[in-house]
């Protein structure tokens, strides 16, 4: 469903992505990990065209993402994205946050949109917070609202960019629980994260990046028990040592 072919990207002279090839099948969960600055976030931002690529091709649901003729707004409406710092709109209530693009992009009526928003809030366990402003919620609650906002567009795939990195430890699980449920429901997901527990539980494939290259892409069993690349072994020894 999501395919990256020979993708390269530069920031001026600095190459952030180096000939990356990735395939994510429908209903698969792909966990992307690697040291900071390795290009993980850039990689998933290329999938919905938030970042431009200089070389290669990206296809999502047979739509050619980097073709200049592609309507990126239409494409993005079909791909949900969750950010590290939640990025809820601070001047809108929780309900307005979730309803805005349903009304403006999908042209739902306000009633339809709000109804959908409320049912999604119920799903992430925040129905009673609908009229609050983001500033009055905890980080974990804000991130769950952000997930609901992405789901409101009925996406065919979800992208997560370090969704738990900005959270206090005691709030990480409430967000991961929502994501695990989503994975089990069959959502196609690409998740940049260091939460190896999450990866072990729901990942179909794990991708390890270093310096803009894909060092290893393997099933979770192979990845954790029998990694091929030395760089991956070193990384795993560091993050799994305790």
């Amino acid at each position: 469903m999501i395919e990256l072919k020979n993708v390269s990207k530069w920031y001026d002279d600095f190459q952030v992505l180096n000939d990356c090839n990735v395939q994510i099948q429908k209903k698969d969960v792909m966990v992307i990990c690697g040291p900071s600055g390795s290009g993980k976030s850039t990689l998933i931002k290329c999938i919905n065209g938030l970042e431009k690529i200089e070389k290669g091709d990206i296809f999502v649901d047979n739509i050619h993402v980097n073709d200049p003729k592609t309507n990126l707004n239409e494409l993005r409406a079909k791909i949900g994205m969750v950010f590290q710092n939640f990025e809820l709109y601070p001047h809108m209530t929780v309900l307005q946050n979730i309803s805005l693009s349903q009304i403006k992009v999908l042209k739902r009526t306000a009633d339809e949109a709000n109804e959908k928003s409320i049912s999604l809030l119920e799903r992430v366990g925040l129905k009673d917070q609908a009229s609050k402003y983001p500033a009055n919620l905890s980080g974990g609650q804000q991130q769950r609202v952000a997930i609901a906002r992405a789901l409101a567009m009925d996406p065919i795939a979800m992208l997560f960019d370090e969704p738990t990195s900005a959270l206090d430890p005691e709030m990480i699980n409430e967000v991961l629980d929502v994501m695990i449920e989503l994975a089990q429901d069959g959502m196609t997901m690409a998740v940049v994260t260091h939460e190896m527990g999450f990866a072990k539980k729901v990942a179909d494939k794990i991708l390890f990046m270093d310096e803009g290259r894909i060092e290893e892409m393997a099933s979770k069993e192979t990845f954790f028990e029998n990694p091929k690349s030395d760089r991956t072994k070193l990384f795993l020894s560091k993050i799994l040592s305790h």
């Binding site: 409406a77 994205m81 950010f83 710092n85 805005l100 693009s101 992009v105 992405a150 567009m153």
Partner: peptide, 18 residues
């Protein structure tokens, strides 16, 4: 206003002007 706000808005399919 943080540029991530515009990324978040555009990621949901809103156009630049929206």
């Amino acid at each position: 206003v943080s540029s991530n706000q515009i990324s978040a808005a555009r990621a949901t399919g809103l156009s630049y002007s929206q």
